[in-house]
Amino acid sequence: MISIDIDKKLGDFTLSAAFEGDSGVTALFGPSGSGKTSIVSMIAGLTKPDRGRIIIDGETVFDSNAGIDEPAYRRRIGYVFQDGRLFPHLSVARNLDYGRWMTGIERDQAQFKRVTELLDIAPLVKRRPGALSGGERQRVALGRALLMRPRLMLLDEPMASLDAKRKSEILPYFVRLRDETKLPMIYVSHDASEVKALASRVVLLDGGRVLKQGGVELL
């Protein structure tokens, strides 16, 4: 369960959002510039809200009143960025292993195999990120975040940089991810069909504010 109530001033833009997420996929839906990416960045701990509270799984990771601000590297929140952000100097295998290495989790071959098979990236592990297609890159980014054993997954328009054909190729992986891991997810999108295919809960955003929240019937 995720509970968020944050305010942040970004230049002329004021973000003021409060919403809840459930244990399934919560979609943040709205036009570009509605503050979706800023919200996930604050949940991840990469941007600091001016005021408010972020609670994940019963743990408060940010609370301006109590002076709590857990740094990003201790939040254990997986983040798949629009642009993948694979480390270009590391092989796919080292990219996938990076989170496990940094967090000091035991090496788990079975888990590595499970994730690479779930995302069909096992044949890519020896390659460099520069040699991957856009769709492959996003699947590796997803696998990298999963292997760090997050308690929440943030997916920030993970298909935005892909063309329609690639999107239809990769969407099934997100469905599989939702069904086979019981990981709560926040999925940012401005594409209603994506959200309908994946989300159990929808938060409608516009101009930095929550217009409505509820089931997918809101769309």
């Binding site: 990469l46 590297y73 201790r74 952000r85 975040a145």
Partner: peptide, 13 residues
């Protein structure tokens, strides 16, 4: 620096 942000979300101090 976006790559450094990515590293932070993966647990790197």
């Amino acid at each position: 620096r976006k790559l450094e942000d990515a590293a932070a979300t993966l647990g790197a101090n």
